Simulated scan of single mutants.
Amino acid sequence: MRIAVAGATGTAGAAVVAQARERGHQVVELTRAAGVDLVSGAGLDALLPGADAVVDLANTTTTSAAKSHAFFTAVTTGLLAAEARHGVGHHVALSIVGIDEVAAGYYAGKHAQESAIASGPVPWSLLRATQFHEFAEQSLGFAKAGRVSMVPFGHLQPVAVSEVATALVDLVEAGPSGRVQDLRGPRRELLVEMAKKVAARRGTGQRVIGVPMPGGYGHAMRSGVLCGNNKARTGTITFEEWLG
């Protein structure tokens, strides 16, 4: 199959590209280096002809609901319109477990993305997954003062990117499936403890302090809704295995 990947250089995108190629698929990376601007849609018409599916892993780093909504709406609608023009028969996207409980901030954009996909012109598949193991390392940079990192209190059930990539490539091969079973990691973890383990592994002397995060996202983390429920499919790679 010919698979186009948006966000091909990101954490999940790189894993999907690698796995798709290992399975013998032809991969087209929709990146700036390839002349693509996902927000404006520039360059898509040159690369999508002949594609069987698009895997949308485009992402933005923002806590602003307005910016997140604008980004995901522009990227998703632009991709879907280009796919429809060129007869691409399958749009595959990755979203986040628990966002129904959080309508603010970054998650507002993910809600908009899911809505655009479900009402769009292209048959689709949507996988929601919990946070990646890599989120623990990212959290060390959220709020820093010298060698002190302030990390939000909260519960996660992190999953390995490799397992998410496997699920996404499986979906491409299976064809349009709608919203499929959520995917979460094998164990519930405390983000602060995860961050401490990453800092210790780095050996840089970074001190991690847990802090309460305000707002809807902070409440969701503390309540455990971002961990998923027993209806979710459970991965096998633990945080400790990933860290090792």
Rank of each mutant, 00 (worst) to 15 (best):
G154N: 01
T61Q: 09
L38C: 09
A82P: 02
E137L: 12
L127S: 04
G50P: 04
R233L: 11
V198D: 00
I237C: 10
A195S: 14
V54Q: 06
E241Y: 11
P121K: 12
V172C: 15
R233P: 01
E240T: 15
M150V: 01
Q113R: 15
V54I: 12
S223E: 11
E163H: 10
R187L: 15
V180P: 05
Y107C: 10
D37N: 14
A136I: 00
G244D: 15
G13Y: 07
L190A: 02
G109I: 11
L79R: 09
K110P: 02
E29R: 13
R21Y: 03
A53T: 10
Q131E: 11
T31G: 11
L44V: 08
A93Q: 11
E83R: 09
S125V: 10
Q26Y: 04
V151Q: 00
S223F: 04
S68P: 09
Y106H: 14
L183S: 07
H219M: 08
T76R: 05
A15V: 11
V102T: 13
V55G: 06
T61S: 12
T9Y: 09
E101Y: 13
N59P: 04
L94N: 07
A116H: 11
K197C: 00
G41S: 08
R207W: 03
L171M: 15
G7K: 09
E22F: 03
A200C: 02
T76W: 05
V159M: 04
T73S: 14
P123L: 11
G120T: 11
R188E: 06
K197M: 08
N229F: 03
G98P: 02
Y217M: 11
A199D: 01
Y107K: 02
G203S: 07
D170N: 15
K67N: 09
S95L: 13
W242L: 05
T238M: 04
K197I: 00
D182I: 00
R184W: 01
E22R: 15
R207L: 14
V122C: 12
S40K: 13
F239C: 05
A200F: 01
G41D: 08
L44I: 07
A66Q: 12
G154F: 01
S177P: 04
L190W: 00
L226G: 00
H86P: 08
S64C: 04
F153M: 01
A8M: 12
R179H: 10
E29H: 05
G43H: 13
L57D: 03
I3K: 02
